[in-house]
Structure formats: structure tokens, C-alpha cells
Design a protein around this nucleic acid. Structure first.
Lengths: 342, 342
DNA sequence: CTGTTAGCGCGTTCAG
DNA sequence: CTGAACGCGCTAACAG
């Protein structure tokens, strides 16, 4: 007996094999396995037992072909190498795996070519039930079409666009004002801003938070204290250097990310924290490794990743794409780069 | 006309639609599309044109079900948060995408539970044509079975086990000896080693490289200079502190990774590089951000990722799993933490 | 509650 | 060189 069973054949067992081995019909086995429809408990028990005896494991491809759902989530990101991004990625990876889904990772680090290809070829061919996007502003238009066609899309760290897609971000404005207020409380008044690219919504928000705190303290906003940079450490150094060369009154620096703050630290050297206070944004791993250790605004990156997955899953299971925009709170992590009590 | 065409139906076009639209048979369309079997050039042309007119894009799930191959590569890694890992990941992601494959990412950060589940449930169900592994030593036994069953598996940064699986690593031993020799040439003689966990083959190799250089210079190896740590900055600080408390003669530190080197820098403070030289291993992004900037052994991490993909793809396409063990060269990146000419 | 039947979209036999 | 039929593994109708 079992002449046609999977064991003896060497191929992987299918529900057909289970059906044969348990003397039931394919459909019954399928129902028992997915808990769909009513099956007699004893029958289900029998199916489950022979399934595990045979070492059965469902075949995702067949399931996907039949149901149109793949239990896969795609994640599109620019480059993995932005340090804040890895925490988001870990949050996404863990949440996806917890949900029994599989994560498809796509990076557009190689340029626009890759982006186009992703939209035109990969996306339509690959069965993804949902897509997570990390800030590739250029892509949004074409992606939005897909979202309109029913694909659940969630944007992480957005906030630039008029929120046409569900998104997860952190309280950029509040965080920036937290940081600025901290500086003001330490008695700093000439607070330079090393800004990131203003096409990012998060940068506009962080600037707003900065001016909020200034207003609140009755300190006048001086636009000449704001210099643009590119989110890199070297860029931060250069931007601050040019500012300092024309304005020696600066007594604090608010950098819109940690990398630029580190660049500032590097330039300011021994003047931090006595003469100048420095505060960053993100709370990447490296912020704990600088000397002095960097005081910075903590973004709940891991949780943002998890939340993005939750939103996507919710949309998938419910079938409706709620236009939610979740904002997670930011907190100030006080270390040593601002002086005062560490 | 076109009453049953995809356009009017709103669903995605299939090869059936192309067949109907071009007045050919499904089989012909399929052949023309994959370049399988002989098709008249003009016929192929016609097929291709109507395919692109219809906006046809092949359905991965159906293709996978039929052929048994999914054009997917899996990547299993412990935690994304190890800083050296992101460069490997980027290399993998780029290479996979270049090859027209899709990357499935799995992290076992949540513990052994996740590992088991991956092996027993995910791996058999998901159609992956190959699997890339980043150093989860515990998993190897069960994975090896799968490899024996025909799944191409490539290990990255292995070298611990007797190389039973194809692998990609960097020249750990040579790199360590490069670093040590550099220290010796600067006149250092009491070179401490902050070691990583010795169950990792790479750590054993790095220790061997260290003693190689010592032998070469005729300096006697003093085992008491080697302290164990856990690859973290805090661990590196602690390990070095305990060593220094019982041996004040140390004039250099070779840390088996950059994180521990940074921990050493933190402890040693102003004594680097004048009194003590520090050299790390990996060349992670943060190595450029420390002060003094960290001299370290560069691992070609991005290239390792790319190579791993190439190996896996080769095995997939050729059908044979060559037991290749590729080793990529390491180089010394001289910055400021050792003194001498920067 | 269970069995039968019919495809999901594709690639691949076989005839012609 | 082309067309008709079949089946990969699974689920959703519909019967019983």
C-alpha cells in the first residue's frame, strides 16, 4: 500500500496524498487544513494527524495562484545603508514574520532605472498583498495608481505629501521643538540649524518644531542661522563650517539628523559641550558611540516598522484601505553633547 | 470585438488574452515569450507587440507552480542591526535585482523559535530557488539536510565549519596579520587582542593572523594579552578595562571588530594614538566617524554579498552545487587611531 | 458535514 | 513551425 504516496515517490506530499492516505476527498482535506467551512472535529483530527505524519507543508505558489493572495509583503527602500533605516527594517521583518507573512525586499539604490523596473515589471508580476514604502518621493505618483487599483500601500516616514496614502511617521515637529527647548533651557540663544533637504516633509516639520520652541521662548527666529545640508556627516561639517565662518555667535547646533550632528561634533571638537551644545535627530546606534555622546531626538523606528506592517495587514484582511496617518511620539534622549547634567 | 479581452474585463491580461488578440495559440505565445523552441521571427514579433500593447506581464505564481522555480532567493540573517551586515545586504539586494530575481528576507532576531519555524514551515512552503545564510551557526545542521536535498545554499562569512557548504568569506587571517604587522611596524610590542566569540570561525582565523604577524616579527605570543568579548562596544570597553587593570604594559589594541575597537577608543580616550594604538576589523560606516578616526581592516562586504548571489545563481542555473569556498581579500585602511602618518 | 467538479495562469507534452 | 489538451497544487462552487 501507499504505492503512490509521497514518501515512496521522493516528492513533497500534497493534499492529494493526504486525501488518499486518510481516505477522504481533497476538498475535505483542504477545508480541514484551513479551517474553512464546517468539518467534523474527528475528521479534522484525522487529517491533521496524517498531514503531520506525511510531513505535509502547504505550497505557497499553488495557494497564491488559486486565491490571488500570496501572504507576502513588499518593502521598497532607497538604500539599506542609511543607519536609521535598519531599525525600521528590523521592525518590519519581525512583524511580517510574526504574522506568518514573507518579506520581499527591494532596494532602489542603483538608481531610477531600478525604480521604473520595479513599478513596471516586478510589482505587477510578483504576488504581493501589500507594499511598504520608505520615502522615495519620486516614486509616489506611479505608486499611487497602484494603490488606487486596490493594492494596500503604506508609507513610512512620509508627511511631505498631503497624506494621500496611509502612512506612519514620528512626531517630527514635536521632537524638534523638544530638542530646541532643551537647548534654550540650557541658556543657548544662537541656535544654528543644520537642515536636511527641504523636499522631505520631515525636514519641514523639524524646522517648524524649531521655530515653535523659539516662539514659545520669545526668541526671535534668525533665518541666517539655518544652513542646508544633505543628511551626511561630511555635509554637516561643511555646512556648519560655512556658517561659523560668517557668524561666530553660534552657541548651539540643532542638526536634523544624527549623521550631520556627528559631522558638527567633529568640526566643533573640544568646544562641545562647554561653548557649543549639539543635538541630533534619529537616535541611531552611532549616537551612543560618539564622544561626547550625542544628545538626540529618539524616533521609535522599530515601532514604526511594526506599525506599518500592522496597517498594511489590516488593510489586506479587511479589504478596505483606511486612510490612516499614524504618528508615533518622539522623545529626547539626553546624553552629553549639550552640557548641563548628562 | 475583444469582448473577452483583459482591457474590458479590468483584470490583468494573460497569455490567453495575447493568444486571442494575436490569433495564435497559447502555446505559441508562451514559446515566443520565453524563447523556448523554435518560433518564426515574424510570429514572435507579433506576439511581443501585442503583449506590450496589452500591458502583459507574466504572473510569477503561475510560473512558479508550473516550473517549480520561482526566481526568488532567500536571505536568512540573525539581526539586521549588526552594522557590517547592511553592506552585505545591499550587495545581495543589488545583485539579486540585477539578475531579475526577488529577494526574500528572513531575520531570526526573535530567537530560536523563529529559526525552527523557518526551517520547518517557511522554507518548504516558499518557493526559493536558493538560500543565502549569514552566520547562524546553530542552524547549520538542519539546513545542511536541505542542501543535501538539492537546495543551493551559500554561507556568507563562514569559515568555522569544515566548509561543507559553498561559502563566501573574506581573508580574515590575512587581514588580522595586516593589522598586527602595522602595529608592529609602529613599534608596538604589547598588543592586546579584544577577541570575539571563538565559536565563530572568523575569530579563530583573526587570532591566527595575529600570531602569524607576531611570529614573523619574532615577537613572542603572550596569551594573557587576549581577552574575550562579545562584538559589542560596551563589551569591548569592559574586556579591555579588565585587561588594563592587571597589565599596564599594553601599547596597542587589536579588536576583532570595529564596535569593540570603538569601545576601546572610548576607554583609552586621549591616550590614543600617542600612548596606545587601536585597530579594528570590518570597516563599518561608523569607523570614519570616530575621533580619532579608526584604522581598521576593510572587509569587502558589498562584494561578498554580490558574490554569494553569484554563487547561488550559478548553482541554480547549472543544476550542480559546486563546493566552492570563495575568499575575498581584505585590506588595511589607515586612519588616525594608530598614530604614525595618518 | 462531505464528495465532485472546475478552474487560477502557465509551460509542455503530443499530434498535426 | 503551430495548435489542442493536460496538469502543477490548491480552493471555491455546487451537489449530495
Amino acid at each position: 500500500m501507499d504505492t503512490k504516496g509521497a514518501r515512496t515517490q521522493g516528492r513533497r506530499p500534497t493534499i492529494d496524498d493526504i486525501a488518499r492516505a486518510s481516505g477522504l476527498a481533497k476538498a475535505t482535506v483542504s477545508r480541514a487544513l484551513n479551517g474553512r467551512g464546517e468539518v467534523h472535529p474527528s475528521t479534522r483530527e484525522r487529517v491533521l494527524r496524517t498531514a503531520s505524519e506525511l510531513g505535509y507543508v502547504p505550497q505557497a505558489a499553488a495557494h497564491a495562484l488559486r486565491t490571488g493572495r500570496s501572504r507576502c509583503l513588499g518593502l521598497l527602500l532607497p538604500s539599506v545603508q542609511w543607519p536609521w533605516l535598519v531599525d525600521v527594517l528590523q521592525g518590519v521583518a519581525d512583524a511580517v514574520s510574526d504574522a506568518g507573512y514573507t518579506l520581499l525586499l527591494f532596494s532602489t539604490a542603483k538608481g531610477e532605472q531600478t525604480e521604473r523596473e520595479f513599478v513596471t515589471k516586478v510589482l505587477p508580476s510578483r504576488p504581493m498583498d501589500g507594499l511598504l514604502l520608505i520615502v522615495p518621493p519620486g516614486l509616489i505618483p506611479s505608486i499611487r495608481d497602484l494603490a488606487a487599483h486596490g493594492l494596500p500601500v503604506v508609507v513610512v516616514d512620509d508627511r511631505g505629501h498631503p497624506a494621500e496614502l496611509p502612512s506612519v511617521s514620528s512626531a517630527n515637529r514635536q521632537g524638534a521643538s523638544l530638542a530646541t527647548r532643551h537647548l534654550l533651557e540650557l541658556g543657548r540663544r544662537r541656535i544654528a540649524v543644520i537642515a536636511g533637504p527641504m523636499e522631505y516633509g520631515c525636514c519641514r516639520d523639524r524646522l517648524a518644531g524649531y521655530t515653535d520652541a523659539l516662539d514659545e521662548a520669545g526668541v526671535e527666529f534668525d533665518p541666517s542661522l539655518v544652513v542646508d545640508a544633505d543628511f551626511t556627516a561630511a555635509g554637516g561639517t561643511a555646512a556648519l563650517a560655512s556658517l561659523l565662518s560668517r557668524d561666530a555667535s553660534v552657541d548651539a547646533v540643532f542638526a536634523m539628523n544624527d549623521l550631520m550632528a556627528i559631522g558638527a561634533l567633529d568640526l566643533l571638537d573640544d568646544r562641545v559641550p562647554q561653548d557649543v551644545s549639539v543635538v541630533g535627530f534619529d537616535d541611531i546606534a552611532a549616537a551612543e558611540l560618539t564622544r561626547p555622546r550625542l544628545t538626540t531626538v529618539h524616533q521609535p523606528l522599530y515601532e514604526m516598522g511594526q506599525t506599518a506592517v500592522a496597517l498594511a495587514l489590516e488593510a489586506i484582511e479587511s479589504g478596505v484601505i483606511a486612510e490612516q496617518n499614524v504618528t508615533l511620539p518622539t522623545t529626547l534622549v539626553v546624553r552629553e553633547s549639550c552640557g548641563g547634567r548628562p
